[in-house]
C-alpha cells in the first residue's frame, strides 16, 4: 500500500462555519421521504419539545452544502491544499479498483435546530487494510465534529471510505 498510516492520521480535512436554515432543512426532510410536520412547522416542532424546527438525523452530512458563506469562514486548516481525502483516494485509484462509502456513523450530543450556527472541523482518524476474498480493502476513516458557539459538541460524524482492489 502506498499510504503510510502515520503520515495520514491526524490530517485536517477542512473546517466551515455553517448556518442551519429553514429552507434547506425542510426540503432535506422531504428529500429523504420524511413528511413529519416537525420539519415543516414551527408549531409542530415546539410541540415535539424543540425551540425551533430541528434537522433530520442525517442532515449534518449535507449541511456544509447549505448555509456556508464567505464572510464568516474559519481559517483553512489544510493551508489551501483542500481536503486530502480526494488526493489519497486518487493515489489508491491509480492502482485500479473501486472506492465505496463503507460505513457512516452519527453521535448526537444536542439537537440541531434552524437558527443554529455550527462550527465544523474534520480530520482523518484511521487508515488500515484487510484482505478479504482475495481482495485488498483499504479503509480511510474521517471524523467530523460540529460544535456550537460555546464550543460544545453537537454532532460527531464518522465517515468510512473503502478502496477495494
Amino acid at each position: 500500500m502506498g499510504l503510510e498510516r502515520d503520515e495520514v492520521v491526524g490530517m485536517p480535512t477542512g473546517a466551515a462555519t455553517i448556518h442551519i436554515e429553514r429552507g434547506p432543512v425542510s426540503r432535506f426532510a422531504k428529500g429523504v421521504t420524511d413528511s413529519s410536520p416537525v420539519y415543516q412547522s414551527t408549531e409542530a416542532a415546539r410541540e415535539a419539545g424543540f425551540d425551533s424546527i430541528p434537522a433530520p438525523p442525517t442532515f449534518t452530512f449535507a449541511a456544509a452544502h447549505w448555509g456556508t458563506y464567505p464572510e464568516d469562514q474559519p481559517e483553512d486548516p489544510t493551508g489551501g491544499r483542500g481536503n486530502p481525502i480526494r488526493k489519497l483516494m486518487s493515489e489508491l485509484m491509480a492502482e485500479g479498483g473501486l472506492v465505496l462509502h463503507g460505513e457512516q456513523e452519527f453521535l448526537y450530543h444536542k439537537p440541531v435546530q434552524i437558527g443554529d450556527t455550527l462550527h465544523q472541523e474534520g480530520k482523518i482518524v484511521d487508515l488500515y487494510s484487510k484482505e478479504a476474498k482475495g481482495k485488498t480493502m483499504t479503509f480511510l476513516v474521517m471524523e467530523t465534529v460540529y460544535r456550537d458557539d460555546a464550543g460544545d459538541p453537537v454532532v460527531t460524524e464518522r465517515f468510512n471510505l473503502i478502496h477495494r482492489k
Binding site: V32, S36, V38, Y39, F50, T58, F61, E103, E105, L107
Partner: peptide, 25 residues
Amino acid sequence: MFSMGLLARALTDWAGVGNLTEYRV
C-alpha cells in the same frame, strides 16, 4: 445517504424526532 435518511425516518417516526443518541450503518 438517501437510504440512511429513509431508515432514519423509520427510527424517528417510532422514537420521536430528536431521540437518537447514536446511529450507524
